[in-house]
């Protein structure tokens, strides 16, 4: 990230069906250091609509980072991941799988679908906030992304 663009608004897409988790994530990002905009969608289908700017999301921004839960209604997080990573226009967007599942097969499967990283949601709030801060720090301060 360029130091000159300190005030750049970071666009985040949160795909999460539980409003409590959505709010928690939003609150955690509020404690972050960057200006961010968390856009949230409730299911996999809506997530793809958002990313392809279809329907009511025609003027939606392209997110800088996607936070993806795995267990979603309508379209499963794994299917969404597969579609994003096979889409020429979307596959460059980093996808962070953020889920409660600790199952090994979920971890293996999502990495095989080219997830950029896999994080199990900590149960403790303080830890969760730390994790969200770490995500922000890592993806927006440490990592060099192609469009920077």
């Amino acid at each position: 990230m360029n130091t000159g663009e300190k005030d750049k608004l970071v666009e985040i897409l949160l795909v999460e069906d539980n409003p409590g988790d959505v709010r928690l994530t939003v609150e955690a990002f509020k404690e972050g250091k960057l200006r961010n905009n968390v856009n949230s969608v409730e299911d996999g289908f809506e997530a793809l609509t958002f990313l392809r700017r279809e329907g009511k999301y025609a003027s939606a921004p392209q997110p800088d980072l996607i936070l993806l839960d795995l267990n979603l209604p309508k379209k499963d997080g794994r299917e969404v991941l597969a579609e994003i990573k096979s889409d020429e226009y979307l596959k460059h967007i980093p996808v962070v799988v953020l889920t409660t599942s600790k199952a090994e097969e979920d971890i293996i499967k999502t990495y095989n679908l080219h997830a950029n990283c896999y994080i199990t949601k900590p149960v403790d709030l303080a830890e969760f906030i730390e994790v969200v801060k770490s995500i922000e720090n890592f993806w927006f301060k440490i990592v060099k992304l192609p469009w920077d």
């Binding site: 539980n18 409590g20 928690l24 609150e27 409660t100 949601k121 149960v123 403790d124 709030l125 969760f128």
Partner: peptide, 13 residues
């Protein structure tokens, strides 16, 4: 664990 995480997280918040 899921609802408990909600309860725990929000009272902590």
């Amino acid at each position: 664990q899921e609802p408990l995480r909600m309860v725990g997280s929000y009272v902590q918040l």
